[in-house]
């Protein structure tokens, strides 16, 4: 079975959200193949979950003063701070073709297995922690979110290659209640990144190679490298104004 591998490189975060939705719509309409997509953001940005309140979750003044773009996803989950030092992914797949479970945690974990296999090539043991975390040595190295319609899944998230923890916690208002129940002293102690766990700075090209290998092994697939289709590009142009609009970003 062949999937598309699409590495778009550095991308504007608003455009990225339009690309994510475009690939999902196109997959739903059976116009696009199952896809593993990778990207990095070309600017500092913070991503709100679809249901989050911007003014409650973010220090908007700090974002403005520091040119941090405020972006909203069309998927649920929590806010995440990003710059160009994370590798972000999207998987669009028909779950029926691969026996991926229909429930959220089951399907999320199944897709995470591609990354777990990938990290094994780097001699790192990663574990999926429901509902949407990937842990290495107890620290969160990847978070993500999902939407689905019919049997099509869109799962997207980030792999923290390096992470500016200090800026992240200036941008995000993390309520203490969120971590109290987990018995963790502070939110910061929950996060780790690949370079820290590896003890060296991994080259992105090497990381991308092992991610491809991880998915090939986990799903028994091969990849065809290609870009967005003309239909997906058309959809991106239609969707982009929504992601750039204040009405959507500050919808609540």
């Amino acid at each position: 079975m062949m999937w598309r591998y699409l590495d778009i490189g550095l991308i504007d975060p608003y455009e990225a959200m339009a690309v994510h939705e475009a690939m999902f719509i196109s997959r739903l309409e059976d116009e696009s193949p199952n896809t593993l997509y990778l990207e990095q953001y070309n600017t500092k940005s913070v991503f709100l979950g679809y249901h989050q309140c911007a003014q409650a979750e973010l220090n908007l003044d700090y974002c403005k003063q520091n040119n941090i773009k405020v972006v909203r996803r069309s998927t649920g989950g929590g806010a995440g701070y990003m710059d160009s030092k994370q590798l972000n992914y999207e998987v669009t797949v028909d779950r029926k073709e691969y026996g991926i479970p229909s429930d959220f945690v089951g399907s999320y974990g199944r897709i995470m297995d591609g990354f777990i296999e990938a990290l094994k090539y780097l001699e790192l043991d990663a574990e999926f922690k429901p509902i949407n975390d990937l842990l290495v040595n107890g620290g969160k190295i990847s978070g993500g979110c999902m939407t689905r319609k019919d049997t099509i899944i869109l799962q997207h998230g980030s792999l923290l290659v390096d992470f500016d923890l200090e800026t992240a916690f200036k941008v995000l208002n993390v309520p203490k209640i969120k971590y109290k129940s987990k018995g963790i002293k502070s939110a910061k102690s929950r996060v780790t990144c690949l370079n820290k766990e590896l003890g060296y700075a991994i080259k992105l090209e090497n990381l991308k190679t092992v991610i491809k290998k991880g998915f090939m092994k986990s799903f028994g697939i091969s990849f065809n490298d290609s870009g967005l289709s003309s239909y997906e590009k058309e959809l991106v142009n239609k969707l982009l104004p929504k992601y750039r609009s204040e009405e959507f970003i500050y919808r609540m």
């Binding site: 249901h51 309140c53 069309s74 998927t75 649920g76 509902i131």
Partner: peptide, 23 residues
């Protein structure tokens, strides 16, 4: 976010980082 009217809910807005389908 809750606006109370007496002992009742006048208006309520649910936000957060949970997942819910349909969205």
């Amino acid at each position: 976010f809750l606006r109370k009217g007496g002992g009742s809910i006048e208006d309520i807005i649910f936000t957060g980082d949970f997942f819910i389908f349909p969205e």
